[in-house]
Amino acid sequence: MVWGGFSLHQRTPLYQVVGNLTGQRYRDEILAPIVLPTLQQIGPNAVFQDDNATPHRARLVNDYIQQTGVVRMDFPACSPDMNPIEHVWDELDRQVRANHQPPRNLQQLLQML
Rank of each mutant, 00 (worst) to 15 (best):
M1K: 12
W3A: 01
G5V: 10
G5D: 08
F6N: 02
F6I: 03
F6S: 02
F6H: 02
S7L: 07
L8C: 08
L8K: 13
H9F: 13
P13I: 05
L14E: 04
L14A: 03
Q16I: 03
V18D: 13
G19N: 03
G19P: 00
N20H: 07
T22I: 00
T22Q: 01
R25V: 04
R27C: 01
D28S: 04
D28M: 09
I30K: 01
A32G: 00
A32F: 10
I34S: 12
V35H: 09
L36S: 08
T38P: 01
Q40R: 13
Q40V: 09
Q40T: 10
Q40L: 14
Q41C: 06
I42N: 10
I42T: 05
I42L: 07
G43H: 12
G43I: 11
G43R: 10
P44L: 13
P44W: 10
N45S: 11
A46F: 11
A46Y: 14
A46G: 11
F48K: 07
F48N: 03
Q49F: 03
Q49C: 00
Q49L: 11
D50S: 07
D50P: 01
D50M: 11
D51G: 12
D51W: 14
N52S: 15
A53N: 09
T54C: 11
T54Y: 10
T54A: 15
P55W: 10
R57I: 07
R57N: 11
R57A: 12
R57E: 13
A58T: 06
A58V: 04
A58D: 01
R59N: 08
R59T: 10
I65A: 09
Q66I: 10
Q66N: 11
Q67F: 05
Q67S: 06
T68Y: 11
G69C: 12
R72P: 00
R72E: 01
M73A: 01
M73L: 09
M73V: 02
D74V: 05
D74N: 08
A77V: 11
C78H: 07
S79P: 00
P80E: 05
P80W: 12
M82D: 04
M82L: 14
N83D: 05
P84Y: 15
P84M: 14
P84W: 15
E86G: 02
E86L: 06
H87E: 05
V88G: 02
W89V: 01
W89K: 04
W89H: 02
D90I: 09
D90L: 06
L92W: 15
D93P: 01
Q95G: 03
Q95N: 13
Q95I: 07
R97T: 08
R97N: 14
R97M: 12
A98G: 07
A98Q: 13
N99S: 15
N99A: 15
H100L: 07
H100G: 05
P102L: 13
R104Y: 02
R104C: 01
N105D: 03
N105W: 10
L106W: 14
L106R: 15
Q107R: 08
L110K: 15
Q111T: 14
Q111M: 11
M112Y: 15
L113W: 06
L113P: 00
